[in-house]
Design a protein around this nucleic acid. Structure first.
Length: 827
RNA sequence: GCCGAAGUGGCGAAAUGGCAGACGCGGAGCACUCAAAAUGCUUUUCCGAAAGGAGUGCGGGUUCAAGUCCCGCCUUCGGCACCA
C-alpha cells in the first residue's frame, strides 16, 4: 500500500467535523413545522438546560440520548419537533452577579451563547428556529399572564406560613434548596421563619395528579410514578370531632385509625399551631409561661434535630381537656412538636397502644396506654412498642370482635350517625410556595394598594419588566432586591389611582419550566402564550427526556399546569408528557463529578481528544440509558475505533449508487434485513446499547464479506453499508454523513429513511435444533424448519452424544418443540 | 421505619420461561512491518491436560426446562421520612 493511498483511507475526526458543520448550517435538516408537511408529527423534548457555564458530561449524555430518539423518528419518516431553550432565571446568575458586581443578564446570555455553540458542535438535532430563554420579557410576560389566570381562578393566593430560612444567606429557601437540613450553598443550618408568601393551590388537584398517574403506567419509569405517588401521599381515614371543656367550638382531628377511638388516652395539638396558643391562653400563668418557653424552643429547632431518629419526644400539658365522642372520657390535651401544624387539622387523637409515636410520647410523660386491638402480639403496655397491624377489636363497645377494616367502617358510620365525624382523606402534598425574595426571576404581577388590596396588573400592562440591576443591592438581606428600585416599586393603583406599590417578590423558576414545552409551539408570539392551533397539532410531548432529579418537582408542577390549562380550556389533554425517559448520571470513579472531589472530566477535552461522534456513541453504548455511566469504565477510544472501522467500510464499497440490491448476495442481505428488524425495535424500546451492538455485528459481517466473502462490489454490501450509515447517524452524525458522501450521496443522511424490512429474506429454510438431557445441552444439529416432531425426536435420540448422556438411565419423558428444541427427561 | 429498584466473567453489559455471557473494553496469540503504530484474524466464565464438571447474591419451590415465575433471606443503591 502506498503512502498516498493510506492517507486517503484515514478516518480524520476533526477534518470530518469541520467539513460538515457549515454544510448542515445551510441544510437545516431539523426545521419543523413547514407548511404542507404531510409527515406524521412527533414531539421529542429534552429537558432544557440551566445556563450555568459550558455544557458538561451530564448534558452530553442527555443530549446524545435525546438525539438518538429524535433522529430515529426523523429517519422513520416523521415530522419531528425537537426544540431547545434555556431555563435562564435562577440563583447562580444572581450569585455570580453579586460576586463580580455585574448584571445577571450578561452572565446568563454569555453562558447561553457558549452552550448554544457547544450544542452546534455536538451536532444536536435541535430546531434552531424555536429557541426560547425564560429570562426574556417575551417569555416571562406569559408567566405573569398565567399567574393572573391562576389568580382569577383562585389558584394563586397569599398566606402567612413558616418557610425555610437560611440565617447566613438571609433569604428563604425552597424545599429543594435544603439538603439534609443544611443550606445548599453555604451549609448553614436552616431554620423556619413566618412570612407572607404566594402559593399555587396544587392540593386542589391532588386527586387528579395522583389518579392520572395510572394513565402513564408503562410509558413513564415506574420509579418516577411511585415517587410521585409517595410525594402526593393520599391517605384515607376519618375526621373526628372532640368537644373541648370550656370552649364552644369542637376540635376536629384527622385519623387513619377511627377503629382505635376507644384507645385514645390523650390529644395532641401542634405547638406552633394557633389552636395551641388559644387553648393555653385560658390556662394558668404557670402553664402559659411553660408553653411560651416551649414554643420558643420549637421555633428554634431545625431539620437536623427533627431528622434525628433517636430524638426524645417533647411537649407540655395545656391544662385543657377534650371529650371522647364515643365514651365521654376526659382526655388531657398536650402541645407537642411531633404533630405538624400544616397536616390534617394540626391536632391528633393519641392512641399510644397502636401508634408508635403516641406510644413514645405516652412513655415519656407517663400517660396511659390502652389496648383496643388484639393483634396476637400481646399488650403494648408490656411489649415495649405499639402494635399497628390487623387484629380483633377489644375494649371497644360495639366494635368488639370486629377486624380492623370492619371496625374502621363501623366507627365511621357511628360517628356520622352522631354527627361527630365523617370519612375523610388527606394529602402529604402541600401547596406550592412560589415567591422568592430574589432579583433574577419573573416579577409577580400584583400591585398592593392600601384601599383596594391586591390588584392584578391589567393584562395590557404586561409584561412587568424587571428593572435594571444597576444601582440595586442584590445581596441577600431577607427582602427582595426589587424593593430597592423605588421608581419601579411605586406606581399608582390600576383600580383607584392612589399611590400603590408593586409586589417585590419574584416567581420560583419552576414556574418557568412548568409550561415551556407549550411555548415552543409559538416561541415568538406577542399575542398568546402559545398558539392553540399549534398545540392541537403538536402537543402533548410524545417523548420527554431528562434526569431523574426532576422526578418529583418539575414533573409534578408541569402536570399541575397542564391540568389547570385544560380546565381553562386552553389545551385538550391532561398530561403533558406521554412518554418519559430518565437517563442516568455520568460518574467518575464511582461518584458524581465535582471540582472539589477532583474527579471532574471536562466535556470539551473529551471532545478534543476523541471527537464528538465517539463521545456520543460512548454515551449510548455504555449500558441501559437509565443506568449511571462511570466514565472510568467505558472506552471512548473503543468507540472511535469502531467508527473508523465502519467508515472504512464505506470507503471500500465499489458498486455504484442506485445498484439493484435484489441482485445482491442472499446471505448478506439476510443479515442486513434482520439487522433492520432488530435495530428499530431496540431503539423504540430504549435499548440503545443493544442497537449499537447490532450495528457492530453487521459491520463485522460486512467486513468479512468484503475481505473474504462476496467482495466489495456486491450490491448487498452497498445495501448493508448504506443502512449502517443511516443507523450510525443516530449516534455519530459526522461519521455517518461522511460515509454517506463516500457512498456517493448528496448531504443529508439525517433525512434518509431506513429501508423497510424485506420479510421474504428472513424466512429460514433450516435452523439449528438443540437437544438437552435433563435440561443440559448435549447436542445440536441443523434441521429443516418444517421438521415433524417425530422426526426431530428420532434424530435427537439417535445422537451419540445424547445416548452417552442418557447412559443407563431410563427415559421418563421427551419434550419436543419442533424445530428448535428437544429435552429428554430421565428418571 | 415506609416505598421502590438492582445483584450475571477481570470490567461495561446481552438474553419473548428454551444453547447463559451477544456486543464491546481489557488480556493473550498470530499475520502484515526492518521495526513500531495502525489494521486484520484467532482466542479469552471458572476448574480440568483432556473427557468432563461447576456456574447468573443465598435458601427453598413451580416446571420437561428458571438469570427470567413464586416464597423466604442477604447485600447494595435511590426516594420519602414524627404526614396521625
Amino acid at each position: 500500500m502506498s503512502i498516498s493511498e493510506s492517507e486517503e483511507n484515514v478516518y480524520d475526526v476533526s477534518a470530518i467535523q469541520d467539513k460538515w458543520l457549515p454544510i448542515w448550517d445551510e441544510l437545516r435538516p431539523f426545521a419543523s413545522g413547514k407548511e404542507g408537511d404531510t409527515r406524521p408529527k412527533k414531539y421529542v423534548l429534552d429537558m432544557f438546560p440551566y445556563p450555568s457555564g459550558d455544557l458538561h458530561m451530564g448534558h452530553a449524555e442527555a443530549y446524545a440520548l435525546g438525539d438518538v430518539i429524535s433522529r430515529y423518528w426523523v429517519q422513520r419518516g416523521f415530522n419531528v419537533m425537537h426544540p431547545i431553550g434555556w431555563d435562564a432565571f435562577g440563583l447562580p446568575a444572581e450569585n455570580a452577579a453579586i460576586k463580580r458586581g455585574l448584571d445577571p443578564r450578561g452572565w446568563t446570555y454569555d453562558n447561553i451563547e457558549q452552550q448554544r455553540s457547544s450544542m452546534r458542535r455536538y451536532a444536536c438535532s435541535f430546531d434552531w428556529d424555536r429557541v426560547i430563554r425564560t429570562c426574556d420579557p417575551l417569555y416571562y410576560r406569559w408567566n405573569q399572564w398565567l399567574f393572573l389566570e391562576f389568580y382569577n381562578k383562585g389558584l394563586a393566593y397569599r398566606k402567612n406560613s413558616m418557610v425555610n430560612w437560611c440565617p447566613s444567606c438571609q433569604t428563604v429557601l425552597a424545599n429543594e434548596q435544603v439538603v439534609g437540613g443544611l443550606c445548599e450553598r453555604c451549609d448553614s443550618v436552616v431554620t423556619k421563619k413566618a412570612l407572607t408568601q404566594w402559593f399555587f393551590k396544587v392540593t386542589e388537584y391532588a386527586d387528579r395528579l395522583l389518579d392520572d398517574l395510572d394513565t402513564l403506567e408503562g410509558n413513564w419509569p415506574s420509579k418516577v410514578i411511585s415517587m410521585q405517588r409517595n410525594w402526593i401521599g393520599r391517605s384515607y381515614g376519618a375526621d373526628v370531632e372532640f368537644e373541648i371543656e370550656g370552649r364552644t367550638e369542637p376540635v376536629t382531628v384527622y385519623t387513619t385509625r377511627p377503629d382505635t377511638l376507644y384507645g385514645a388516652t390523650f390529644m395532641v395539638v401542634a405547638a406552633d399551631a394557633a389552636l395551641a396558643a388559644e387553648l393555653v391562653s385560658d390556662s394558668s400563668p404557670a402553664i402559659q409561661a411553660e408553653f411560651a418557653t416551649y414554643l420558643e424552643k420549637v421555633k428554634q429547632s431545625n431539620d437536623i434535630e427533627r431528622l434525628s431518629t433517636e430524638r426524645e419526644k417533647t411537649g407540655i400539658f395545656t391544662g385543657r381537656y377534650a371529650i371522647n365522642p364515643v365514651n365521654g372520657e376526659r382526655l388531657p390535651i398536650w402541645a407537642a412538636d411531633y404533630v405538624l401544624a400544616d397536616y390534617g387539622h394540626g391536632a391528633i387523637m393519641a392512641v399510644p397502644a397502636h401508634d408508635q409515636r403516641d406510644w413514645d410520647f405516652a412513655r415519656t410523660f407517663d400517660l396511659p396506654i390502652r389496648q383496643v386491638v388484639d393483634t396476637g402480639e400481646g399488650d403494648p403496655n408490656t411489649l415495649g412498642f405499639a402494635t399497628v397491624g390487623d387484629g380483633v377489636l377489644v375494649n371497644s363497645g360495639d366494635l368488639n370482635g370486629l377486624s380492623k377494616t370492619e371496625a374502621i367502617a363501623k366507627m365511621t358510620q357511628i360517628l356520622e350517625g352522631k354527627g361527630k365525624g365523617k370519612a375523610a382523606k388527606n394529602f402529604r402534598l402541600r401547596d406550592w410556595l412560589i415567591s422568592r425574595q430574589r432579583y433574577w426571576g419573573t416579577p409577580i404581577p400584583i400591585i398592593h394598594c392600601d384601599s383596594c388590596g391586591e390588584v392584578p396588573v391589567p393584562a395590557d400592562q404586561l409584561p412587568v419588566e424587571l428593572p435594571s440591576a444597576e444601582g440595586l443591592d442584590l445581596s441577600p438581606k431577607g427582602t427582595s432586591p426589587l424593593g430597592g428600585a423605588a421608581d419601579w416599586v411605586n406606581v399608582s393603583c390600576p383600580k383607584c389611582g392612589a399611590a400603590a406599590k408593586r409586589d417585590t417578590d419574584t416567581m420560583d423558576t419552576f414556574v418557568d419550566s412548568s409550561w415551556y414545552f407549550l411555548r415552543f409551539l409559538s416561541p415568538n408570539s406577542t399575542e398568546v402564550a402559545f398558539d392553540l392551533e399549534q398545540a392541537k397539532q403538536w402537543a402533548p410531548v410524545d417523548q420527554y427526556v431528562g434526569g431523574v432529579t426532576h422526578a418529583i418537582l418539575h414533573l409534578l408542577y408541569a402536570r399541575f399546569f397542564t391540568k389547570v390549562l385544560h380546565d381553562l380550556g386552553y389545551v385538550d389533554f391532561e398530561e403533558p408528557f406521554t412518554r418519559l425517559l430518565n437517563q442516568g448520571m455520568v460518574l467518575m470513579n464511582g461518584s458524581a463529578m465535582s471540582k472539589s472531589r477532583g474527579n471532574l472530566v471536562r466535556l470539551s477535552e473529551q471532545l478534543d481528544e476523541h471527537g464528538v461522534d465517539a463521545i456520543r456513541l460512548t454515551m449510548a453504548f455504555a449500558g441501559p440509558p437509565e443506568d449511571d455511566i462511570d466514565w472510568a469504565d467505558v472506552s471512548p477510544a473503543g468507540s472511535a475505533k469502531f467508527l473508523a472501522r465502519a467508515w472504512r467500510l464505506a470507503n471500500d464499497v465499489s458498486s455504484s449508487v442506485g445498484v439493484d440490491f435484489k441482485t445482491g448476495d442472499k446471505a448478506v442481505r439476510k443479515a442486513v434485513h434482520s439487522f433492520l428488524r432488530d435495530f428499530g425495535h431496540n431503539i423504540e424500546t430504549f435499548k440503545f446499547n443493544v442497537g449499537v451492538a447490532k450495528i457492530m455485528e453487521l459491520v463485522n459481517v460486512l467486513r468479512k464479506a468484503v475481505d473474504t466473502g462476496v467482495g466489495a462490489a456486491d450490491p448487498a454490501v452497498r445495501e448493508g453499508v448504506e443502512e449502517i450509515a443511516k443507523a450510525i447517524s443516530l449516534f455519530a452524525p459526522y461519521t455517518a454523513e461522511d460515509m454517506w458522501a463516500q457512498l456517493g450521496h448528496q448531504p443529508g443522511v439525517a433525512l434518509a429513511t431506513f429501508a423497510s424490512v424485506d420479510e421474504s429474506l428472513l424466512v429460514e429454510s433450516s435452523i439449528v435444533a438443540v437437544v438437552q438431557v435433563d435440561g443440559k445441552l448435549r447436542d445440536k444439529f441443523e434441521v429443516a424448519v418444517d421438521i415433524t416432531e417425530e422426526a426431530l425426536r428420532e434424530q435427537a435420540l439417535a445422537s451419540d452424544a445424547v445416548q452417552r448422556a442418557i447412559g443407563d438411565k431410563t427415559i421418563a419423558n421427551v419434550i419436543v418443540r419442533a424445530p428448535k428444541l428437544v429435552n429428554i427427561a430421565t428418571k
